[in-house]
Nucleic acid binder design. Structure first.
Lengths: 143, 143
DNA sequence: CTAAACTGTTACTTTATAAACAACAGGTTC
DNA sequence: GAACCTGTTGTTTATAAAGTAACAGTTTAG
């Protein structure tokens, strides 16, 4: 498959708005920073808005964080933009006539849930502030 | 992308060999349990063999676990068969002329690594024995 | 000893998801 | 009202995975 960059691009959008609030914040400008298509950026922004992370203004390029960067976690962005919501996927088509095929799906669901929760717990511990600070720190060091 | 069922199918192969050692263990029989293509199963088995989880015999259907099911973790199978090895993916193409685009990749790599480690730690705690027991338990309850 | 079955391998096709691209109706700003 | 913007729809392209086919060489059974 083609890998999804939705989470990375979603974070990029929020970080860009936070870091460069004086620059143009049109979907075209943000897309130039990501090197993505403005339409893709607009679609992601709609998802971020639905999730309550972003406010926008139809017709005008004035996106703002809907709440403090301290209060936005990687998990929030993940849930907002990722289509799948699961990092591991149980094969949905196994032979139900076979003892293994009939019972492996539920079993794997159980263990995959544990992996998912571990990943989500770590994602919840990472704030947008932390990511913004990381970008700013690297920026300073490269000057 | 199309979701990968390689991990699920890899576990299925190992579990099938453990649970049904008296049945035919040909790639065709295993594939019938997974409802997958025998060729796909053979390719996965080659990966499992390379990773030291499975022994096979060319020309004869006698696959065996290379070590105790207690000593095989979900992480072992994940590393053996998954092409990507990463659950999250940093967008590799951002604008290096932009302060955000130039520094977000490294920053995200750092935080994604933490999420990856949390997930892998949990995967390492899940053994093939545990999965086999889960399948057997469900099997008993459905009789 | 040979026929059947199997593995290991290669090559090609199909399918599924995401991103790129294009276009436009309607809102906003100056 | 001209320029720019968002929100939205639809189409195309790229890519990873699975399906399919084929076959050389190995093993096993009769």
């Amino acid at each position: 498959m083609k890998y999804s960059y939705r989470l990375s691009d979603g974070v990029h959008i929020l970080a860009y708005i936070s870091i460069a609030p004086t620059a143009s914040l049109s979907s075209t400008s943000i897309a130039a920073s990501i090197e993505a298509n403005p339409s893709v950026v607009r679609k992601l922004m709609v998802e971020l808005k639905k999730a309550g992370l972003l406010t926008t203004k139809n017709g005008s390029a004035e996106p703002r964080l809907a709440r403090s960067a301290d209060d936005i976690t990687l998990l929030d962005v993940y849930r907002a933009v990722e289509a799948s919501q699961s990092i591991l996927h149980v094969d949905p088509r196994t032979n139900m006539q076979c003892p293994v095929g009939a019972n492996i799906q539920e079993t794997l669901n159980g263990v995959y849930d544990r992996v998912q929760q571990a990943a989500e717990q770590e994602m919840q511990a990472i704030t947008l502030t932390e990511i913004i600070d990381g970008i700013q720190e690297r920026r300073r060091q490269s000057l």
